[in-house]
């Protein structure tokens, strides 16, 4: 934040563990038995960002903005339509995840894991904790038998669950405990990067706080890098170092968390921040209530996708799609008017 000079940047730039360039994922809309393609849903469209080793990067936006699809493409749970995902684990040569196949992809997946949103549907109800948390270890031939049990016990302990519960089934656990099981499973192979897709949005307030603290502790202990996908901005501000804001499949703003929350550059970010209900009855209520609904990625408006809901929109916004521009401050924003507008943050 403070190192603005070019020399400072050179000396302190951390390693980019992940460099995503021009990532796109289009889903075809087909009709008839011949599945003739009539349209494309541009779920993720030319998304570019990077992740520094050891940081937590937030990926925020409303439902349908493409944040989950982006997360899934990064791990190749979905195959991207276009783009590069350069993963640099540090100890070996960087690879383009988007181009990997077969064995190489399987090897890579040890380093990248995912924590899912719904702790009920993401755990097989017929498997015990030992099966669930031990599955990655078995799949990669890391350990078995007694050694497997020891490792699973260690993992369960690290997420605050008792190892004695190893033979129990997921139904015996509460939502918060299940999310811990999901975290233990993601950590089994000592990954370097964890993509957490709305890991706390299904949890109650007090359990959510416990889980956020656990994620922060594990990050410090195991020097993990997180990509934290969420729609909850108060959680994002709490846990993330930098934030990528997405709208209708595109990145609209990238900034350090503090900068983003105190002085957003994109009108969508401003509206998103102002929509968060603040737990303070005396908070100022000059809310920007967005009209209308999020742009349909199958039928995006002309020009800037946000212009029909934007209070600042001008003619240029209706005609031309703005590029993602790097401002003088080094922040990135996709808005024609970014240099002219002064937008309100939350602090």
């Amino acid at each position: 934040m403070t190192d603005t000079g070019p020399t400072a940047i050179k000396t302190t730039v951390p390693r980019r563990i992940l460099d995503v360039r021009g990532l796109s994922k289009h889903f075809p809309v087909t009709v008839g038995i011949l599945r003739r393609e009539v349209a494309k849903i541009r779920a993720v469209d030319d998304v570019t960002f990077h992740v520094h080793a050891g940081e937590t990067l937030g990926l925020v936006g409303e439902s349908g903005c493409g944040k989950t699809t982006t997360g899934r493409c990064l791990l190749r749970a979905l195959d991207p339509t276009a783009g590069e995902i350069i993963f640099d684990p540090g100890d070996v040569e960087p690879v383009d995840v988007a181009a990997l196949k077969g064995k190489a992809l399987k090897v890579l997946r040890q380093d990248m894991q995912m924590v899912f949103q719904d702790p009920f549907s993401s755990l097989n109800p017929r498997w015990t904790l030992l099966d669930l948390v031990g599955e990655p270890l078995v799949a990669y031939g890391v350990s078995r038998g007694k050694a497997l049990e020891t490792r699973v016990a260690e993992l369960l302990r690290s997420v605050g669950l008792r190892p004695e519960y190893m033979r129990r089934y997921p139904h015996a656990f509460s939502g918060g405990e299940r999310q811990r099981i999901g975290i233990a499973r993601a950590l089994a192979l000592n990954p370097k990067l964890v993509v957490a897709d709305e890991p706390v949005s299904a949890l109650d307030v007090s359990v959510r706080a416990q889980t956020l603290n656990l994620l922060a502790d594990l990050q410090e202990e195991l020097s993990l890098t997180y990509i934290f996908i969420s729609h909850d901005l108060s959680v994002v501000q709490h846990i993330c170092d930098r934030v990528v804001v997405m709208y209708s499949g595109r990145v609209v703003e990238v900034a350090d968390t503090d900068d983003l929350f105190s002085a957003p550059l994109h009108p969508y970010t401003e509206a998103l921040l102002s929509a968060v209900p603040k737990p303070n009855p005396d908070a100022a209520k000059n809310r920007i209530v967005l009209k209308g609904e999020i742009a349909d990625p199958a039928n995006a408006p002309s020009g800037c996708a946000f212009h029909p809901r934007c209070t600042y929109a001008k003619d240029i916004c209706r005609q031309q799609a703005p590029p993602l521009t790097t401002m003088e401050s080094g922040r990135e924003v996709r808005c024609h008017l970014a240099a002219e507008l002064t937008l309100a943050g939350v602090n």
Partner: peptide, 23 residues
């Protein structure tokens, strides 16, 4: 008090103090 302390505030990034245990 515990409920209020478990909510991340937009103004601060201090460590949360959740209620111990579960319902």
């Amino acid at each position: 008090k515990a409920l209020l302390a478990s909510v991340p505030k937009l103004e601060s990034r201090e460590r949360l103090e959740p209620v111990s245990g579960m319902v």
